[in-house]
Structure formats: C-alpha cells, structure tokens
Amino acid sequence: MTFVLLLALWLGAFMNHAALWPARYGLPAPGPTGQRLARMLRLGLPTGALGLAVGVQGPVTGLLSWFAALSFAGLLAASLLALRGRMANRP
C-alpha cells in the first residue's frame, strides 16, 4: 500500500515536470500561477514521498522503495504521455 502511495506521489511529480516543459511533451502551457504551483509540487511531492517511505518502512527499505517508485512512476508517466501524444497525432 505504501508503495502505491509513493508511486502516485512520484507520478504527480513527473506530470508536473512535464507541465513545466510543455513544448517537449506536447502539453498546453500553464499560466504563471500554474507554473509556480507545478514547480512547488514537483519538489514537494517527492519530498513528501521520501518522508512517507522512510517513516513507514525505515531508512534502508524506505530509500529502496522511494527510488523504485521514482523509476516505475517515471516509466508510467512516460508511457501515459507517449500514448497521449500518439492519440493526439491520430488523424
């Protein structure tokens, strides 16, 4: 359960990262407030995830889970964005 939460937090962070690079990821550009919020969440969500992982699972297992969540959430985010791009390009 903890890992699912970590995955969700990292996925949110990656999606905010994509929102900050709209041209690269083919997303609509956010306004200044949206940019500020995305920047805060990109930093805040992984920090929260780290606190959760270490707090619940201890330092060693927690850190391993946190890094694993980074990797798999990144893959998930990339797949979602790639599929979105493919759907958008479909005639």
Partner: peptide, 10 residues
C-alpha cells in the same frame, strides 16, 4: 532532467 520522461513512439 528536461527529457527524463520523454518517449517518442511515433
């Protein structure tokens, strides 16, 4: 960092 989740299947 910018391209960390970039995947261009097309």
């Amino acid at each position: 960092v910018p391209d960390i989740i970039l995947l261009r299947l097309s």
